[in-house]
Amino acid sequence: MSGEGGAAWVFGENIDTDQLAPGGTLKGSIEEIAKHCLVRVNPSFASEVKPGDFVVGGRNFGIGSSREQAAQALHHHGVAAVIAPSFGGIFYRNALNFGLLVVECPDAGRIGEGDRLTLDPVKGEVKNLTNGESYACQPVPAHLLEIVEAGGLVPYLEAIRS
């Protein structure tokens, strides 16, 4: 398998914030929470995901609580982007605020476990290097991409306030 792009970790529909950041772990640090991220649905995810990998979900990815540790835990693991047909609205905002790319992609279901992917968020295209397919996705709106490119809302605010 090519080392290009990032590997896809594929999850189903309605991945909720309790699966991303379980309530019982929220008292702890993000390092601690990240160890529990998604392990209820895939026990090897938190220990084996590599920086630059992609998380691919079904519809409603990140539905549930407003706890931003759900997005922060994925960001902590160095996930390049979350690709799903639709997102929980609060999760979507939280992810961008951490500089984690989230893209709406109707064809996300065509991506297989371990497929190598690349993403162009401006053009709105996911390329699947494993099967040669490419999928159209919603381009990330320009004002939100600015926040992501700054590294998240806090560095973004830091920059515009200085």
């Binding site: 407003s66 706890r67 609060i90 905002r93 605020n97 809302l153």
Partner: peptide, 8 residues
């Protein structure tokens, strides 16, 4: 909203 949004 999440806490970072709230900080904003």
């Amino acid at each position: 909203v999440g806490s970072t949004d709230m900080a904003g």
